[in-house]
């Protein structure tokens, strides 16, 4: 059996904002074995990115605050790490690709400035010379199939296209040879034609290095193609997890079913059905199951109690009272 790489238990994160406290993550559980590729899906605003940033301890604090739970990487709790361990974690442990490459590159520094710093601090112990660092930067850019890497190092982000910027972010994330890669909707902000290219590239690189991956997305097609297991997230909680094939074949949670229906099918009527209503207000989240105001099968118990996880197969778990008996 593969070794457990990451284990998040009962993670709580809140945001203190003007007018109150947003309880954004409300007991998130997630785990991942070495070499595994896991998908994390859910609507915009359900806490996927917050979960990812919590794992790296890079949430902007304030306003964010981690109020409970643990994130184990191997045996170490990331939430208890000191500065030195954290630096170790960032340089070799986990790296992340952000959703919007325009926002995630510093606009007033050249690509070279930023990429060489990334390489320099992920290889501190090797004491590379400036020229070696630059050589690595060039080869990192060639690895992501960017033409004329030497010139790109001199460029500022605004001189490059969105696709090129995201390739640079991928190069940065992979430069540190991390054990775990978190890709947070890596293609959402790109043109459709570029999306496929970038995904293919990312897939190839991850495959080559056999990096464990958490892929955050709301494209179910990508999840199906890429991942072995899927977590479905709703309003700061995991509502269902299952092996990818099983989830697509027989989704249990009403929310998961809704998500599947929301995908427009080329052969179908062409109109997405979707789920009525919106993601709840985090200031005053619904009691009990957070999905109950939108759930077509809502029962009395859903309004009062939070559903625990019911096991529905070897690795299939669902947090819904409908499956209490099974």
């Amino acid at each position: 059996m593969a070794r457990r790489l990451l284990h998040i238990r009962d993670l709580h994160v809140r945001f203190d904002v003007y007018g109150g406290t947003l309880k954004v993550l409300n007991g998130v559980n997630l785990h991942l074995d070495e070499g595994e590729k896991v998908g994390l899906v859910g609507e915009t605003g359900c806490g996927k990115t917050t979960t990812a940033k919590s794992i790296l301890r890079i949430l902007p604090m304030p306003p964010a605050k981690i109020t409970g739970g643990e994130i184990l990487l191997g045996k170490d709790d990331i939430l208890k790490m000191g500065i030195r361990q954290l630096r170790e974690l960032h340089s070799h442990g986990i790296s992340m690709i952000f959703q919007d490459p325009t926002a995630s590159l510093n606009p007033v520094f050249t690509i070279g400035d930023q990429l060489t710093d990334t390489i320099r601090y992920s290889t501190v112990e090797q004491k590379l010379t400036k020229r070696e660092t630059k050589k690595r930067a060039v080869s990192a850019l060639s690895d992501v199939s960017l033409p004329d890497p030497v010139r790109i190092l001199e460029n500022y982000p605004i001189q490059l296209s969105g696709g090129m910027r995201q390739r640079i972010c991928i190069a940065m994330a992979l430069a540190s040879r991390s054990r775990l890669l978190i890709a947070d909707e890596p293609t959402t902000s790109l043109d459709v034609t570029i999306q496929a290219q970038v995904l293919k590239l990312l897939g190839r690189l991850v495959e080559e290095k056999d990096t464990s991956t958490i892929l955050i997305t709301h494209s179910l097609g990508v999840v199906r193609e890429w991942t072995q297991r899927v977590y479905v997230m709703y309003a700061g909680q995991m509502v269902e997890t299952a092996p990818t094939k099983e989830l697509f074949h027989s989704p249990f949670h009403p929310y998961t079913k809704g998500l599947m229906k929301a995908v427009p099918k080329l052969t179908g009527e062409g109109v997405a059905l979707g789920i009525s209503g919106r993601i709840p207000d985090y200031l005053n989240p619904p009691t009990g199951c957070r999905f109950h105001p939108r759930c077509p099968h809502v029962m009395d118990v859903c309004r009062k109690e939070r559903p625990p996880y019911f096991v529905a197969g070897d690795t299939h778990e669902v947090a819904c009272f409908l499956y209490r008996e099974k």
Partner: peptide, 22 residues
């Protein structure tokens, strides 16, 4: 609170350097 600061932090760049430079 911008993402590029989060990205720089995620890449082990020392906090002091992020503050004074980036």
């Amino acid at each position: 609170q911008r993402d590029f600061i989060a990205l720089e932090r995620s890449q082990a760049i020392p906090e002091r350097r992020i503050m004074t430079r980036y």
